[in-house]
């Protein structure tokens, strides 16, 4: 079977595109990195792809709000094509700034309808500064094709605006009830709702990642592509080199999801 194709879209300020592309390529996909301008001019090309990835970085400097400007552009020019990709069995992943973009587009959590009023936001960390530190996440739902419930994901978080805040209490409850919450930060021994630094940003209910109604869109703040090689692990010099890293598992599942869908 042909290798599934992954489109990695980048804007001015995107900076995790190469390692995201590498991750997909080494898990069996074939990726293309495309600047935003040609993509926004011809979003139809998405028909040739099964995977869309929006990598981390600072799209347009994160001016105004993290992910806002690129989110507006993607929603305006490529929104329909992205929905179509998911409908025909494709997957979408937004990492860090990519997650912020998916949220600002209104694609995640997408409870009412895609591109509707924003339902949640990702704002300044409680410590009000950028933080690069490794965090442990628990997969709390089987809703998303990239993840398996019960597993943990250990990866670096590296962001200044990762605190997830729902619009109101009703929205918070619905996020859980509808299975949109797939990843939550946990303590070193799996403790729920851990304090800083285990939850690096103060997110509501320690939410680290969301999916949509189909489970084929994943947005998460931490960087699975930075826990891809075993030597990425912060204590590999003590504990040895792992056979299979948490990050690699996530990308492999994403590729499998589109391979199975056909």
């Amino acid at each position: 079977m042909a290798r599934p194709r992954a489109l990695i879209v980048r804007s001015a300020g995107t900076n995790c595109d190469a390692e995201t592309a590498y991750a997909f390529d080494s898990c069996g996909a074939q990726s293309t990195i495309l600047p935003s301008q040609p993509f926004l001019e011809r979003p139809q090309i998405l028909a040739d792809y099964q995977i869309l990835a929006i990598p981390g970085g600072f799209s347009y400097g994160d001016d105004i709000l993290a992910g806002k400007v690129f989110g507006l552009e993607l929603a305006t020019h490529a929104g329909e094509e992205i929905v179509r990709l998911v409908k025909r069995g494709g997957v979408v992943i937004g990492i860090c700034n990519g997650f912020q973009i998916l949220v600002q587009m209104g694609l995640l959590p997408g409870l009412a309808k895609p591109f509707g009023e924003p339902e949640v936001t990702l704002t300044d960390n409680d410590v009000h500064k950028y933080q690069d530190r490794w965090v442990r996440m628990q997969v709390v739902s089987d809703a998303c094709v990239f993840l398996r419930k019960g597993e943990t994901l250990f990866a670096p978080a590296a962001h200044g605006e990762g605190k997830l805040v729902p619009r109101d209490e009703a929205m918070r409850l619905r996020l859980h009830q509808t299975g949109r919450v797939v990843l939550r930060y946990v303590g070193p021994n799996g403790e729920e709702n851990p304090p800083f630094p285990h939850c690096p940003n103060g997110a509501t209910d320690a939410i680290a990642g969301l999916t949509d109604a189909t489970g084929r869109i994943l947005g998460l703040m931490p960087h699975p592509e930075r826990h891809f090689f075993p030597w990425h692990h912060p204590t590999w010099t003590r504990d040895g080199l792992a056979e299979l890293t948490d990050g690699r598992k996530l990308f492999e599942r994403g590729v499998q999801a589109v391979t199975a869908a056909g």
């Binding site: 590498y22 891809f228 090689f229």
Partner: peptide, 23 residues
Amino acid sequence: IVRQYDHEVLAGSVVKPMVGPGG
């Protein structure tokens, strides 16, 4: 200071500026 810098982007990090189980 170090935690405010992204020291892992580009996915090349092998020995980080801070090490050990407590980081």
